[in-house]
Computed example of a mutant assay.
Amino acid sequence: MASVSATDLKGMTQEERVKALGMTTDQLTGRSMYIEFDPDATERFAYPWAPDVDFNKRTELDCDEMTATEVNANIRSLMEEGFGSIVVKNPRGMHSLGVGILNKLNLIIEGSTGYFAVGLIDGPNVRINGRVGWSCGENMMSGTVIVEKNAGSTFGAAIRGGDLVCRGSVGSRTGIDMKGGTIIVGGDTGALSGFMMQRGRMVVCGNAGKNLGDSMYDGTIYIGGDIQSLGVDAVEAELTDLDKAWLTRKLTQYGLMPENGVDHFTKVVAGKQLWNYDNLEPNEKKLIL
């Protein structure tokens, strides 16, 4: 790439500076796409060692006198016994509750949880009838998680699949490093939501804080209210009929469809001007930001 001086870039628009620095002309290398699951497969939708559970077989687990480690161990033991519906009572804001569940399961948590609730999960359907702390659903692979009240910061950090839903409002950095799946927020979200987002969809029915989608690589963010500010390389895009159809279907599914429809939503995507940021010289990086 030819050297570009600060004098040459003076007076150029942001888009012109990006092109002059080779940010949009150099194609990424080493990027590959692969199919993780065979769409024609008719079996083996679960891990080979996963216990066979019956959703009609229901039990309750009172964790009032337990540690988080004991609660999680009991959940696994109950699944080994074939219980497919487990109700956890008296969580009392316990941290790391319901983490690492790699199995089909209906898990109902009656109360509020602390940090890192139901992280590292692959398959269960979870309903939390209270609030959650930081990083709920972190690194979630598949399944559904529905939080009935509010959530803390980094809601859905590094999520890879499934639906993560909060009916209330969430804190800052929602969907940070998001790699797939869907995050839906019924209320507002804080600053730096969608930071370094790579794939997936985020839907916020309310307002968004500062620096929405900062440094996002790919993916889509839909905001139903006001956006305080967009982050670096986050740009507005046209809300298509396909977007509206998907939003209508998804929000209706979770009872979060606005009375005035979805036409007012703002669509935010990556401007893709930072895709080759690492290839720039230090002085060029300063010029592009």
Rank of each mutant, 00 (worst) to 15 (best):
A158M: 14
G162H: 05
T252H: 13
G111S: 03
G261V: 06
D122Q: 00
V170H: 09
D243W: 09
L102D: 00
L280P: 11
G130K: 12
G162K: 05
T13S: 15
N74Y: 06
E236H: 07
L120R: 01
G200K: 02
I223N: 06
G111Y: 04
V126H: 02
L289N: 10
R44W: 11
W49S: 14
A20G: 04
Y217S: 15
S215K: 09
M197P: 11
L289R: 12
M178K: 11
T174H: 05
L61I: 06
A237M: 04
C205N: 15
T266E: 04
R31S: 11
Q27I: 01
V145F: 06
A41R: 15
G30Q: 09
F155P: 02
E281P: 01
V262G: 12
N125W: 09
I101L: 14
E81V: 02
G100D: 14
N56T: 12
P39W: 01
A237K: 00
D188W: 07
M33K: 12
T13R: 10
G271V: 01
I221T: 02
A2K: 15
N125C: 02
V203H: 05
N125G: 03
A2N: 11
C136E: 05
A237P: 04
Y222E: 01
A6T: 13
A41L: 10
D263M: 13
P91K: 08
N211C: 05
G152E: 08
P48R: 10
T42Q: 07
I121P: 01
Q273R: 09
G186D: 09
D263E: 15
L242M: 07
A191G: 02
A73T: 12
N103E: 10
L102T: 01
L230F: 12
E110P: 00
Q198W: 00
D263G: 15
G261A: 08
I176M: 10
L289D: 12
K272T: 09
N276V: 01
C166A: 13
K244V: 06
R167M: 01
V268N: 02
R17K: 14
H264K: 15
L9A: 14
N207E: 07
V185L: 05
F45E: 00
A46T: 12
L61R: 07
G206T: 01
I288N: 02
L192V: 07
D52H: 14
T25S: 15
G133Y: 06
S142R: 12
G82T: 05
V88T: 06
A157V: 12
L192Q: 12
T69S: 10
K210C: 06
E60K: 12
A50F: 06
L274M: 11
G82H: 08
A270M: 09
S3N: 13
A20I: 09
A117P: 04
N207G: 01
G30I: 10
Y217H: 13
V232D: 09
L107D: 10
R44C: 03
T252E: 14
V18L: 11
I223H: 04
D38M: 04
S153L: 00
V71Y: 03
T67K: 08
G84H: 07
D64P: 00
T29Y: 01
D241Q: 15
L212P: 04
K210H: 07
C136S: 11
L239G: 07
I121N: 15
